[in-house]
Design a protein around this nucleic acid. Structure first.
Lengths: 135, 135
DNA sequence: AACACTATCACGTCGCGTGAAAGTAC
DNA sequence: GGTACTTTCACGCGACGTGATAGTGT
């Protein structure tokens, strides 16, 4: 049981991670992380590890994984970190490997999108000076 | 009035552009483009120019502009292409310039996201072989 | 007792997805 | 007259945003 002096309320957490309060609560509703504790009054309290977990979630977002997919991955991740064995371990490894491959594919997609976006942005930037001669 | 032999129905258009039928209709609902004509039975008919316009919309999407913002930009774009003058022209140019700058900023954001995503994907890929020694 | 912070509903938004039921084109 | 394509509702969804109203912490 961590000391409450070490723990952060949702506001501090949200600011450090760069998420809205609503998002943090939403991820909790969705089963991605539960605050380690609550104050007597009911305020959520988070450990440093949970802040890390939120950062991980935030890094996953650009890859376009759904909340459900994140939950799966985080669950497998947890299984690995807890040092499970046998069937559980094998499944977790398989799951993580699958996500890793998908992640690489989505990075590829992101690169394409970025390329198209850059092209578009440049064409836009070139336009306003002389407008009529464009095709 | 273009010849209907030259024009395409929504299915063909969607396939060429790579959007769903629903998306094409949605962009119409949102005021981004109106089909050039309809058949007697009510089928939407699109010109080649409108296909181009849809491609433009599709290229804007990765930059994260809202439909309302797209409408603004397309409107300004149209003003430039129609060779307006005076006040209208000035406003349109200003608008396009603003969007151009925002587009560049969002490209910058996209690059950052991609970088974080790549880092994440790599870490994921390295994980499943040896799991316990991780941080 | 003032003040910022937080709690839980619960409805709103945006960009479509997904039928359903009917009409159209060839 | 079959069948592939299209039409208009209209509700659903994901990932939060946005109040409203009330309780908490110092």
């Amino acid at each position: 049981m961590p000391d409450r002096g070490q723990m952060l309320q949702i506001g501090e957490v949200a600011e450090r991670v760069g998420l809205s309060l609503r998002s943090v609560r939403f991820y909790e509703e969705s089963g991605l992380l539960t605050p380690a504790a609550r104050t007597d009054g009911g305020f959520r309290l988070y450990t440093a590890e949970q802040v890390e977990r939120l950062l991980l979630i935030k890094r996953m977002k650009p890859l376009g994984f759904s909340v459900e997919e994140m939950r799966e991955l985080l669950s497998a991740y947890d299984t690995l970190e807890r040092g499970e064995e046998g069937e559980e371990l094998a499944q977790a490894r398989a799951s993580v490997a699958l996500f890793a491959q998908q992640a690489l594919e989505r990075c590829e997609e992101l690169r394409k999108q970025l390329a198209r976006a850059e092209e578009f942005a440049e064409r836009l930037a070139k336009l306003p000076s002389g407008a009529s001669g464009e095709r």
